[in-house]
Write a protein that binds this DNA or RNA. Structure first.
Length: 852
RNA sequence: GGGCGCUUAGCUCAGUUGGCUAGAGCGCUUGCUUUACACGCAAGAAGUCGGGGGUUCAAGUCCCUCAGCGCCCACCA
C-alpha cells in the first residue's frame, strides 16, 4: 500500500504546496476565459486571523473551481502597509523599549518601521501558504512598492488637475494622543454618561440674560455666537442683540437658526465653530468667525485667558466651571447620555479641530459610482449590501486624505515658503525643500490615508495602464472581503476605479461576515477568546480548517468559530482517505481509463455522479460553496462509500472504481486541496499532471433503468435493516416469491441487509415487507414477531396520516385545476403507493392480530 | 432618529425563483471487532420554521404587524 493507514496532514501539506508552487500552477495558463481576483491585502504588521482564513478559503475555492472549469485564473496576493495601524503597533514596540516616536526623526522612524514590517514578511507569507491559497507569488504586491506608489501619485495628480482634490481648513477628527486626523468613518462613537451644564450669558445691553446648555464648557472661550430657534418665543426678542461672553471681553451675537431644538436643554446653544461640527456649519451659514481654543496637543491654547492656558481639556473644564461658579454664572447641571467620538485605537476622545488638509471632492465620484451600481454593473453577495452602499454613497461627505503620521506614502505636494496659498504637485518627496522657478517650496509633512492608496489596488496591482494583466484581467471577476470594509474600502475602490480606468474595478463582490467566538462575541485579545488559525491547522490540518469555516457559511452573515465543524471536516477527510485506500487495494492499474458499467450498481453510481456534478456546478457557479460542499460530501460518503463500495465488494468493477475516484477528486479539490492532491500524487492518478491542473471529468452515463433497479434494491435493503433492528431478530432469512430482481441480487441483499440467506420460498411464517414493493418476507421467530406487532402499529399510523393528507390534497378542486399537471400527477402516484403500502400493513396486522 | 440584517432540531447553521413527508454537521439513544475507515458501520429520537394576521390550490420561503437580538449611519449642543 502506498497510502498510509492514516492521513496525517503535517506530513504532506508543506510538500504539496511546494509542488504546486514550483510547478507554476498558480500562474494563469494561456487558454480559456479569464477569471481574476486580487487578495484584499492583509496588514503587513501581524499574523493572519480567522477572518483571513475564511476570506482566503472563499477566494481559493473560487480560484480552484475556475481552474477546474478550464479558465485562466489570476489570483494576486499582497500586503498593505496599513499606515496608522502599523505605526500604532510599532509605537507599542517602542514603548516596550522605553522610547516613543518623538525620539526619532521622520526618516529614521520610517526606516525603522519599514524594517519591522519587512521582518514579518516571511512569517506572513508562510501563513498564507499554510492556508493553501493558490496565489501567484510572482505577482505579490506590497502597498509601498514603487509601482503602487507611482499609481497612487498618478491618481492624486489627475484629481488635482481636474480640481477634485482641494486643500482646505476644515474641522477634522483629531486624536491628540496619536497626533493625527481621521476620516469620519474611522471615529468610534460610544454612548456615554455626561453632564449638561447651564451657563448664564448676560445680554450686553443689560436687559437680561440667556442661559445656554453645554456638555463642553471649556470650549466657551471659543464661542462666536449664541443660537436660538427663530420660533422660540422665549428668545425671539433677543435675536440680533449681543451677549457678553463670560470669562472673556468679547461680545457675541444672538442668532436664529432652525438647527436649534426648542425642547433640548435650555433652547439656547453656544456656537463654537472651531470645535464642533454642527457649530461649524452654523458658522458658515451665518458667516461667523472661528476662534480656536484647543490645540493639537489637546491643551488650551495661548490666546485664552492666562489662568486657563496650557490646561488640558478636562482640567480646563474644571477650572472654567469653578470660575463660572465664583462669578455666579453657573446655573446648574443635569446628567445626560450622549455619543462621544473616540480614537478607535487608543480610545482618546476625538477633538474636532480646525486643520488644513487635503480633501477629495467626493460628490462627482460618488455619483458615478452610484450610477454604475444602479445600472447593475456589480453583483453583490449578499444583495442587501448593494442598497446599504447606495445609501452610504448618497450621503457621503468629502474625504480627508491627509494623515499626520510618518508610516505611509508622502503626499506629493509642496507649499511656497513665501505664499501659503501656492501649492504645487511634485513627486520629489525625498526632499524637504525644492526650488521651482526660483521659489522655494516645502514638502507637505503628511502622508496619504492608507485607504487612498489601497483603493487603487484593483488596477495598480495589475499594472495599469500598460500592463498585460490589466488588459487581460481587468475588471476583476471577484472581490472578496469583509462586510466591514464595504464603506471604507469597497466604496472607494469603486469610485477610484471608475474615475481612473473608466470601468468598475470588479464585476462581483462577495462580502463575508465576521468570525466570532462560539458565543457570538467578536474575537479579541483582551477578552482572550481568539482562536489562531495556525493552531487549528496544526491540530486538524489545513483542509479541515477550510471545511470548518466554509460549511454552513453564507455571505454577509457573521458566524461563530465552531470546532465541531472543523472536526466534521477532519472526519470527511479521513473518509476520503479511506475511500482511496480501499480503491488502492482493489485496483491494480490506475492507468487504464476505459471503464464501462456492468452491474446495476455501476449504472446507479454513474447516474449519481452525473447528478452530483451538475448540482455541484450549479451551486459553485452561484457562489453557494457550502451547498456545493454538501453535495460532494454526500456523494462521496453516502453514495460512493456506503453503497457503491459495499456493493462493489460483491460485484467488483475495479476499472470503474478507479475512474470514480479519479473523477471525484477534482470536485473535492477546492474544499480539501491538500488531501486530494496527496491521494492524486500517491496513487499516480495521472501520469504527469497535478490535480490542481485537472479539469472536470466526464464519465460514461449510467443506464437509468439499471440505476432504478439498484435504487429499488437499496430500498429493499433499507427496509430489511429497519425491520431487523425494530424486531431485534437475529439470524434471519429473507424469502421471496416470483421476484427475479431479488433473485439476481440475492447476494447483495443478503450482505448489505444483514440476513443469513436470501431464498425462493412460499409465503408462510414470518413478516412481509411492505414499503419497498417486493413480494418478500423475513422468517423471524415468534418473540420477534410480537415486537413487530408493536412496530406495525406505528407504521400504520404514519401511513394512514400520509394517505389522508394526499387524499385531501387530491379532493381539492382548486389544487387539481391550478397546480401544475406534473405535480398533481406526482401526488396521485404518491397516493397509490401509500395506499398499497397501507393495505399491506393492514393485512399484516390482520394476520398477526389474533396472536395479541 | 434613519438604514440593513437575524430569529428553523440540544448546539452551530443550510434551505436559490413559493411545490417540504423541513435538511446538514456536531451532540444524543440503541445495536455492531461487518478487516478502507471507531475520525467507523447500522438503526433511530428530536422542529406547531419567534408570535399574530393576510395573499395563494400551496408559505420556512411573498406581504402586513408585534416581539426579541445584532450591525451600520446620523446625531440634540
Amino acid at each position: 500500500m502506498k497510502l498510509a493507514k492514516n492521513y496525517d496532514p503535517k506530513l504532506y501539506e508543506t510538500d504539496i504546496y511546494s509542488l504546486w508552487e514550483q510547478s507554476g500552477a498558480f500562474s494563469p495558463n494561456d487558454k480559456g476565459r479569464s477569471f481574476s481576483l486580487v487578495v484584499p491585502p492583509p496588514n503587513a504588521n501581524g499574523n493572519l486571523h480567522m477572518g483571513h482564513a475564511l476570506s482566503f478559503s472563499v477566494q481559493d475555492i473560487a480560484a480552484r473551481y475556475h481552474r477546474l472549469k478550464g479558465e485562466r485564473v489570476l489570483f494576486v496576493p499582497g500586503a498593505d502597509h496599513a499606515g496608522f495601524e502599523t505605526q500604532v503597533v510599532y509605537e507599542r514596540e517602542l514603548e516596550k523599549q522605553g522610547k516613543s516616536r518623538f525620539d526619532y526623526s521622520r526618516e529614521v522612524l520610517y526606516n525603522k518601521i519599514f524594517d519591522f514590517v519587512d521582518l514579518n514578511r516571511d512569517n506572513f507569507q508562510t501563513q498564507i501558504r499554510k492556508l493553501g491559497a493558490s496565489v501567484d507569488w510572482s505577482r505579490y504586491a506590497f502597498s509601498l512598492d514603487p509601482k503602487i506608489v507611482k499609481q497612487a501619485y498618478a491618481t492624486f495628480k489627475q484629481m488635482w488637475k481636474e480640481g477634485l482634490v482641494y486643500r482646505g481648513e476644515r474641522l477634522v477628527n483629531f486624536c491628540t494622543l496619536h497626533g493625527t486626523a481621521f476620516a469620519d468613518i474611522e471615529v468610534d462613537y460610544r454612548e456615554e454618561k455626561g453632564q449638561l451644564w447651564q451657563i448664564r450669558y448676560p445680554l450686553s445691553d443689560g436687559s437680561g440674560e440667556l442661559v445656554v446648555a453645554t456638555t463642553r464648557p471649556e470650549t466657551m472661550l471659543g464661542d462666536t455666537a449664541v443660537a436660538v430657534n427663530p420660533e422660540d418665543s422665549r428668545y425671539k426678542m433677543m435675536i440680533g442683540k449681543t451677549v457678553k461672553l463670560p470669562l472673556t471681553h468679547r461680545e457675541i451675537p444672538v442668532i436664529a437658526d432652525n438647527y436649534v431644538d426648542v425642547n433640548f436643554g435650555t433652547g439656547a446653544v453656544k456656537i463654537t465653530p472651531a470645535h464642533d461640527p454642527n457649530d461649524y456649519q452654523i458658522a458658515q451659514r451665518h458667516d461667523l468667525p472661528f476662534v480656536t481654543v484647543i490645540g493639537f496637543d489637546g491643551k488650551l491654547v495661548h490666546s485664552v485667558p492666562e489662568t486657563f492656558r496650557g490646561l488640558n481639556v478636562l482640567e480646563g473644564r474644571e477650572a472654567i466651571l469653578k470660575q463660572l461658579e465664583r462669578e455666579g454664572l453657573l446655573v446648574g447641571d443635569e446628567e445626560i447620555i450622549h455619543n462621544v467620538g473616540h480614537c478607535y485605537k487608543c480610545a482618546t476622545v476625538i477633538e474636532p479641530l480646525l486643520k488644513e488638509q487635503w480633501f477629495i471632492d467626493i460628490k462627482p465620484l460618488a455619483d458615478n459610482a452610484l450610477q454604475a451600481i444602479r445600472a447593475g454593473k456589480i453583483e453583490f453577495l449578499p444583495q442587501a449590501k448593494q442598497i446599504q452602499l447606495e445609501r452610504y454613497l448618497e450621503t457621503i461627505r468629502d474625504w480627508n486624505i491627509s494623515r499626520q503620521i510618518v508610516w505611509g506614502i508622502p503626499i506629493p505636494a509642496f507649499q511656497n515658503e513665501e505664499d501659503p496659498d501656492d501649492w504645487i504637485y511634485d513627486e520629489r518627496v525625498d526632499q524637504e525643500v525644492i526650488t521651482v522657478d526660483n521659489k522655494h517650496y516645502r514638502r507637505d509633512a503628511d502622508v496619504f490615508d492608507t485607504w487612498f492608496s489601497s483603493s487603487t489596488w484593483p488596477y495598480t496591482t495589475l499594472d495599469y495602464p500598460q500592463g498585460t494583466d490589466f488588459k487581460e484581467f481587468y475588471p476583476l471577476s471577484l472581490m472578496e472581503t469583509g462586510s466591514d470594509l464595504l464603506y471604507p474600502w469597497l466604496s472607494r475602490m469603486i469610485m477610484l476605479g471608475l474615475y481612473v480606468t473608466g470601468e468598475v474595478p470588479f464585476s462581483k463582490v462577495y462580502l463575508h461576515g465576521m468570525i466570532t467566538d462560539s458565543q457570538g462575541r467578536k474575537m479579541s485579545k483582551s477578552i482572550g477568546n481568539v482562536t489562531d488559525p495556525m493552531e487549528t491547522i496544526a491540530k486538524f490540518g489545513s483542509d479541515a480548517l477550510r471545511i470548518g469555516v466554509i460549511s454552513g457559511q453564507t455571505p454577509g452573515n457573521n458566524q461563530p468559530y465552531v470546532e465541531a465543524k472543523v472536526i466534521g471536516g477532519r472526519n470527511f477527510i479521513n473518509k476520503l482517505w479511506n475511500i482511496a485506500r480501499f480503491t488502492e487495494g482493489v485496483v491494480e492499474n490506475f492507468k487504464q481509463t476505459d471503464a464501462q458499467p456492468i452491474s446495476a450498481a455501476d449504472h446507479w453510481i454513474l447516474v449519481q455522479y452525473a447528478k452530483t456534478k451538475s448540482l455541484y456546478i450549479e451551486h459553485m457557479d452561484s457562489y453557494r460553496f457550502s451547498e456545493a460542499y454538501e453535495i460532494i460530501y454526500h456523494f462521496l460518503w453516502n453514495d460512493f462509500a456506503d453503497w457503491y463500495i459495499e456493493a462493489s465488494k460483491i460485484e467488483p468493477n475495479p476499472a470503474l472504481l478507479a475512474e470514480l475516484l479519479r473523477s471525484a477528486l477534482p470536485l473535492v479539490q477546492p474544499f480539501a486541496p491538500f488531501v486530494s492532491e496527496t491521494i492524486w500524487q500517491t496513487l499516480e492518478l495521472s501520469q504527469n499532471s497535478l490535480l490542481i491542473n485537472q479539469k472536470l471529468i466526464d464519465l460514461p452515463s449510467g443506464n437509468e433503468e439499471n440505476a432504478m433497479r439498484f435504487e429499488r434494491i437499496k430500498s429493499l435493503v433499507n427496509e430489511v435493516r429497519s425491520l431487523l433492528t425494530a424486531t431485534k431478530a437475529v439470524k434471519v432469512k429473507l424469502y421471496y416469491h416470483n421476484e427475479p430482481d431479488v433473485a439476481s441480487f440475492a447476494t447483495v441483499i443478503n450482505q448489505l441487509g444483514g440476513t443469513i440467506g436470501v431464498e425462493e420460498g412460499e409465503a408462510g411464517r414470518g413478516i412481509a415487507l411492505t414499503a419497498s414493493g417486493f413480494n418478500c418476507w423475513l422468517d423471524i421467530d415468534q418473540e420477534s414477531i410480537d415486537r413487530y406487532v408493536t412496530h406495525l402499529e406505528e407504521l400504520i399510523a404514519a401511513e394512514q396520516q400520509r394517505t389522508k393528507q394526499l387524499q385531501e390534497r387530491l379532493k381539492n378542486h382548486s389544487y387539481l385545476n391550478q397546480a401544475p399537471k406534473e405535480l398533481v400527477e406526482e401526488t396521485s402516484n404518491q397516493l397509490v403507493e401509500a395506499e398499497q403500502t397501507l393495505e399491506k400493513l393492514l393485512d399484516e396486522k390482520i394476520r398477526f392480530a389474533p396472536r395479541r
